[in-house]
Amino acid sequence: MAEVPVIEVADLWLKRNGEEILEAVNLRVFAGDVFAIIGPNGGGKTTLIKVILGLIPPDRGTVRILGGLPQEKRHLLGYVPQLRTFDFHYPISVRQMILSGLLGRKTGIIKKFTAADTVLADKALATMGIAHLADRPIRDLSGGEQQRAVIARALVGDPQVLLLDEPTVFVDAPTETQFYDILKNLARSMTIVMVTHDIGVIVSHVTKVACLNRRLFTHDSRELTEDMIQGAYQCPVDIIAHGHPHRVLREHAKEE
């Protein structure tokens, strides 16, 4: 029996204001994948994430999450939205923010958080290395700490899949290294899908790579080939600016 993908996007088309945003996108993410989708700004990455989550209806094509419709299953994913869409001035403590990630699983009219919920929230904070910030208002956190808090909120319900939109935009270089270490640990217990415009993130523990610029270029492997990049970016300058991705990947492969 064939394995059911945790995320399956089939022949997806989306047009906005007369312009094609996504064209014939096919994507299959399987359990255990660490799937990176790279591509230039404006290439449709965030839009693809929103279509996967059922926030934007596609013109054509289907999306399945964990075998079901996005609206039925999306609360089972751990969604990490782009940091810049966030209102970090909202008066909420880090722990309360993490707890809100559990609301989707509660039933009944009054949704009170229990002591067990607090334990889960503190565990997620510990995983992200910010347990000591639990009682602080989110507005007092640094950019890197805020990013960790947003990921902790996604982790609190123990999701099977973590979906990250541009997770390193406001993170400095040392934090970024730590961040990928954390991600590596998480990858042992969950499937990870992330989109980014930064080719530099394609590090050793990514198992699959695709390039998105309206169309999705994928080889179902971690090899980031030159034709994928050129197909997506249509401009060799980016490759030069980021080093030669093909070779970078091969070197990482040997280290393992």
């Binding site: 989550l53 926030l55 609206q71 999306r74 609360h75 994913l77 969604y79 939205p81 869409t85 966030f86 209102d87 909202y90 909420i92 309360q96 923010m97 707890l99 809100s100 990630g101 609301l103 989707g104 009219i109 009054i110 949704k111 009170k112 958080f113 909120r153």
Partner: peptide, 22 residues
């Protein structure tokens, strides 16, 4: 009093509240 946590979640991050199916 009854909807406090839901109202906070929705006013804090509407998109996320949608994703967790509130």
């Amino acid at each position: 009093g009854v909807l406090f946590n839901d109202l906070v979640a929705v006013t804090f991050d509407e998109e996320y509240a949608t994703v967790i199916n509130l």
